[in-house]
Design a binder for these strands. Structure first.
Length: 270
DNA sequence: AGTCGCGCCTGGCGGC
DNA sequence: TGCCGCCAGGCGCGAC
C-alpha cells in the first residue's frame, strides 16, 4: 500500500510529464471513491496549465492558478502516465488528460483513494489539521516530545496520528519503533526525551531509505505496473510475526492495536 | 479534549 | 476445483 515514500515516488514520477503542461480533459468513470469526486473539477482545470506538482502528507497536489487538484492513493491506488487513447481497464476510475498526448490515470481497486478540489486561497478541510512533514526540520525531538506529554495513547498509534506527524503509516511505524528499540505499546506520554530523539532519527531514516528504494522500482512511469517500491525482505518486523528477530533471534510478537497489526521484538523493544 | 471503534471496499487467501 | 468467509488497512467520524 502506498505510504509516504510511495506517494513521493509517484509525485516525482508524474511531475516531469505534466508540470507546465495544459489539461485537455478530465474524465471520471467512477466518482464513488473515498469521497465523491467533485463535479466542479473540469471547469476549473480544463485548458489550464499545471504550475507545480507537490506533496502534503500522502496527498499529491497538482497546482493551478485556480486551485489544487488533490489526489490521495488510499490503500490500493496508483497513478500512471500513459499515452492518450490507452483503453481503460477495470478500476481505472479517473484520467487527467494533458494536451501533450499523455494522461495520468488513477487506478484504485478498493476505492479508498480520493480526488478532491481545493480552490485557490482555501485550505481543504482534510489538510487543515495535518501535522508537520516527517522529513522537515519542524519534525524534531522538541516538537514530538512536547506533543506527547500527557498522552496515554500507545506510542505506535501516537506516531500514526496525522495531526502529530503526517505520512507514518503502519509499515513504517512498526519499522521505526523496532529500529529505535521502543515497545509500541508504551504510552506516548511515558517515553523519555532521549528515546524520542532516537525515534525521530529512525523515522526520518526509514522514510528516506524507502524513498530511494521506491525510486528504483517505480522509476518508469510510462510503463510501470504500479507495484510498491519496497521489498518484504528489507523489512525488519512488518509482516514477520512469529519469525526470528534479525537482531537477537527472539520470536517476533504480533498483536493488534486499533485494528492494525503490530509486530515487535519483545527483547529488543522495551 | 483525548481515546476508541466503526466502516468504507475488493483482491487474495485459507479452509472445506 | 469452487465457493465462502475473512482479512488487510488509511483515516475520517461519531460516541463516550
Amino acid at each position: 500500500m502506498p505510504e509516504l515514500p510511495e506517494v513521493e515516488t509517484t509525485r516525482r514520477g508524474i511531475e516531469p510529464h505534466i508540470d507546465q503542461q495544459r489539461v485537455a480533459d478530465f474524465v471520471v468513470r467512477e466518482p464513488r471513491l473515498r469521497w465523491l469526486v467533485p463535479s466542479e473539477i473540469p471547469e476549473n482545470i480544463v485548458k489550464k496549465r499545471v504550475n507545480s506538482v507537490e506533496r502534503r502528507g500522502k496527498y499529491i497536489l497538482i497546482r493551478f492558478d485556480e486551485g489544487d487538484l488533490m489526489v490521495h492513493l488510499g490503500m490500493s491506488g496508483s497513478l500512471r502516465v500513459l499515452p492518450t487513447g490507452t483503453e481503460p481497464a477495470q478500476h481505472d476510475h479517473v484520467d487527467l488528460v494533458m494536451e501533450n498526448g499523455l494522461l495520468v490515470r488513477l487506478t484504485d481497486p478498493r476505492r479508498f483513494g480520493s480526488v478532491l478540489w481545493q480552490p485557490k486561497g482555501e485550505t481543504h478541510k482534510l489538510l487543515e489539521k495535518l501535522g508537520p512533514e516527517p522529513l522537515s526540520d519542524a519534525f524534531n525531538v522538541d516538537y514530538l516530545f512536547k506533543a506527547s506529554r500527557n498522552r496515554s495513547l500507545a506510542i505506535k498509534q501516537f506516531i500514526m496520528t496525522s495531526e502529530v506527524v503526517v505520512g507514518v503509516g503502519n509499515i513504517y511505524a512498526n519499522e521505526s519503533l523496532f529500529k529505535a528499540g521502543i515497545d509500541p505499546r508504551k504510552p506516548a506520554g511515558k517515553v523519555s526525551k532521549q528515546r524520542y530523539e532516537r525515534l525521530v532519527v529512525e523515522i526520518k531514516s526509514v522514510l528516506e531509505y524507502a524513498i530511494t528504494r521506491g525510486g528504483t522500482t517505480l522509476r518508469d512511469f510510462l510503463s510501470s505496473d504500479g507495484k510498491p517500491g519496497y521489498f518484504a525482505q528489507e523489512l525488519s518486523v512488518y509482516g514477520r510475526g512469529g519469525e526470528a528477530c534479525k537482531s537477537c533471534g527472539s520470536t517476533l510478537k504480533e498483536i493488534r492495536q486499533g485494528q492494525r497489526a503490530t509486530v515487535f521484538c519483545p527483547r529488543c523493544q522495551r
